[in-house]
Amino acid sequence: MLAEDKILFNEIKNRNLKVYEALFSNYYPPLVRFAEGYIFDKQECEDIVQNLFIYFWENAEKINLDLSIKSYFFQSVKNRCLNHLRDLQIHDRHNLLYLEALINQDNYEELQDPEIIVKINAAIAQLPEHMAAIIKLKYLEGKKLTEIAQINQISENTVKTQLQRAKEKLRKILIDSTSIYFLF
C-alpha cells in the first residue's frame, strides 16, 4: 500500500472529517460514473456510492485495505453493483457492463484486473494510429487535454472531438471482441 494512502487511511480512523471530505470530493464523481455503467439509474448509482462512503467512515477500524484506497473504492462499488444486478436477475457473463463502467468513469489505468486490461490494450491496438495515440496519452498516461493539445500541435477542442470518436470506436471493438471471445 502507498505511504500516502496509509497516512490518509489512518486519518480516517482518527475521524478526520477534512480528509474524509477531500476523499469524497475526489472519488465521488468517478465512482458514480463507474456505477452508472452498470446500473444506468441516477438515484440508484448515487445511493450505492453514498452508502459505501458512510460504511467506509463508520467501519474504518474493521476495513482491511490491501491495495490502495482507490482500488478498495472501485472494487466495493463493483460488488455493490453486481449485488444490485443479481436482485434484478441480470448476469454479465461477457463483462459488457464492466467495460461500460470502466470507459464511463474515464480512468482505468489503476484498476487491478489484468484480464480486462489485456483486452482493453488489445482493442486499443486495433484503433487507427492517431486515435490509439490520443487514447494512450489520456487514459494510460493520464495527460490533461491541454497537454495532449500541445504534444500534437492541435487545439483542445480538436482533442475533445478526437477523444470522443476514439472512445466510441473503442467501445465497439471491445464489445465485438468480447462477444467473439465467448462464442468459442
Partner: peptide, 16 residues
C-alpha cells in the same frame, strides 16, 4: 446522465 463533477460531489456531500 451526470454533468459536471464539482456540482455533483458538492450536492452529494450535503445529502450525505
Amino acid at each position: 446522465i451526470f454533468e459536471d463533477n464539482k456540482t455533483m460531489s458538492e450536492n452529494a456531500w450535503k445529502a450525505m
